[in-house]
């Protein structure tokens, strides 16, 4: 891993093997669209306008539908554009707009594809939407300025970060109830679970750290400082083998690689400017970042640190593989 530290991503065309997922889907907050990037040809093959400001982006568990959180450009105003947009992956056409509360920013979907939990940034709430009926079935008060959402692999709990109150609220999805709250680092943004469900990871943008959480007890185990606490970490993603967590440090233009078991920072992967979203391929070999400052994605081979970049829309925010 140390060899990664010496690697500088110079821009275009290295040899990352992104065959596990051929396409990367990128939400572009500035241009109001989703870029579909062919990771084999290293080019944008489609651009899908979503009529609003897209941020959170996820594929359905069956990978047939791409969901994108869309809101208006003004905070604290409930507008007609606030929705989760559903896009058919095969045709790349919008198939519906799903109600998910006001100003949805990030969201996640239960593994059975039944429920979608979204953070409603302006209202200080999280909404649970039944994807079968496409109706909001519960709206729960969480922390102030909620943003990140992750659902545990067993589908029971949703973690919702809140940027202003520095909290993570734990929602029991079947009970439709908040069952715990945790204070975490300053300005928490991204959150994700390890695939085995034992740990969760929460980035703190102003705190410059990532919290490792016991996801069974809903307790913070440790805070890990990143980039001397000055990297402004946002996106987080865990390798499929549960061993590594990758954190996008927006101000450091780099991905931190952290051991999930002991919290050691074991690598650093430079990428292009202002990485916010980050995703790991299913085989764990490739990391993709959405770089808001350079209007690009970086595609990095985890084992070699080599990679390439592809220009996408304006202010890319999130990425799904």
């Amino acid at each position: 891993m140390r060899c990664m530290a010496a690697f500088v991503l110079a821009g275009l065309v290295f040899g990352a093997d992104a065959s596990a997922q051929r396409y990367a889907y990128v939400s572009n907050e500035g241009s109001g669209d989703v870029s579909v990037v062919d990771l084999q040809s290293k080019s944008v093959v489609a651009s899908i306008a979503v009529d609003g400001r897209p941020r959170g982006i996820r594929l359905s568990p069956d990978r047939r539908t791409l969901f994108v959180a869309v809101s208006d450009s003004l905070p604290n105003v409930q507008g007609g554009k606030d929705a989760i947009v559903a896009i058919d992956v095969a045709t790349r056409r919008i198939t519906g707009r799903i109600e998910a509360g006001t100003d949805p920013e990030q969201f996640d979907i239960t593994p059975d594809g039944r429920y979608l939990v979204s953070a409603n940034e302006d209202a200080g709430t999280a909404s649970i939407t039944d994807l079968r009926t496409k109706q909001v079935v519960a709206t729960l008060i969480v922390g102030i300025e909620p943003e990140g959402v992750a659902i545990s692999p067993d589908g029971r709990f949703a973690y919702v970060t809140a940027e202003t109150s520095n909290t993570v609220s734990v929602i029991d999805i079947p009970k439709r109830e908040v069952v715990a709250n945790m204070m975490v680092g300053v300005r928490p943004r991204g959150v994700t679970f390890s695939p085995d469900g034992t740990r969760a990871f929460v980035s703190a943008e102003i705190g410059g750290s990532v919290a490792i959480v016991d996801a069974k007890l809903h307790r913070i185990l440790r805070e890990v400082a990143l980039e001397n606490n000055s990297g402004k970490p946002v996106g987080v993603s865990v390798s499929p083998d549960n061993r590594r967590v990758y954190i996008a440090n927006g101000a450091a233009n780099a991905i931190s690689v952290v051991n999930t078991d002991d919290g050691r920072v074991v690598g650093r992967l430079p990428v292009e400017r202002r990485p916010w979203g980050v995703a790991v391929s299913a085989d764990g070999r490739t990391i993709v970042t959405a770089n808001g400052g350079s209007n690009s994605i970086s595609v990095v081979d985890v084992s070699t640190g080599s990679g390439f970049a592809v220009k996408v829309g304006l202010r890319p925010w999130g990425v799904a593989l």
Binding site: L140, I141, R176, V178, V179, A180, N181
Partner: peptide
């Protein structure tokens, strides 16, 4: 929109 917080198990 409710404060549905379970005090029994809240941290």
């Amino acid at each position: 929109i409710t404060w549905r917080h379970s005090s029994a198990v809240a941290a």
